[in-house]
């Protein structure tokens, strides 16, 4: 019915959009959402490919992706919350403790 290529393309497009969100937005919550979109693009590709070969493997992979995202997200969310509580930071630009201390003035 639908060529596999089209499903894969939708997945790729979602992945790209997610990457764009991650790269272009600076709010922590937006970054997490961008990651979500990327994961989902990957999941769509997996499911589509799985259906192409008419096996359960694609769905299994998608389910594992969900488990991994869930684990990653709960930890990330609590970290966002802690960052907000401690540093009043909602943007990644406010969290620069890793910055090389001796080059504050560099462009």
């Amino acid at each position: 019915m639908i060529p596999l290529t089209h499903s894969l393309f939708v997945g790729a497009l979602l992945f790209t959009l997610g990457a764009a969100v991650v790269l272009l937005r600076r709010e922590l919550l937006f970054l997490l959402m961008g990651l979500e979109i990327m994961f989902n693009g990957a999941a769509l590709s997996a499911v589509a490919a799985g259906q192409h070969w008419q096996g359960a493997e694609g769905q299994v992979l998608a389910i594992f992706l969900m488990a991994i995202t869930t684990a990653e997200l709960v930890v990330a969310l609590i970290l966002v919350w802690l960052a907000y509580q401690r540093f009043q930071a909602i943007c990644v630009d406010d969290l620069v403790a890793l910055r090389d201390g001796r080059s504050e003035d560099s462009p």
Binding site: L23, V96, L98, P107
Partner: peptide
């Protein structure tokens, strides 16, 4: 060059994401 190298260690998550990408 020094400035550019330092810029890779600016602690900005987005920059790191750019490098990874």
């Amino acid at each position: 060059g020094h400035a550019m190298l330092s810029a890779t260690q600016n602690g900005l998550l987005s920059r790191y994401a750019v490098s990874v990408t």
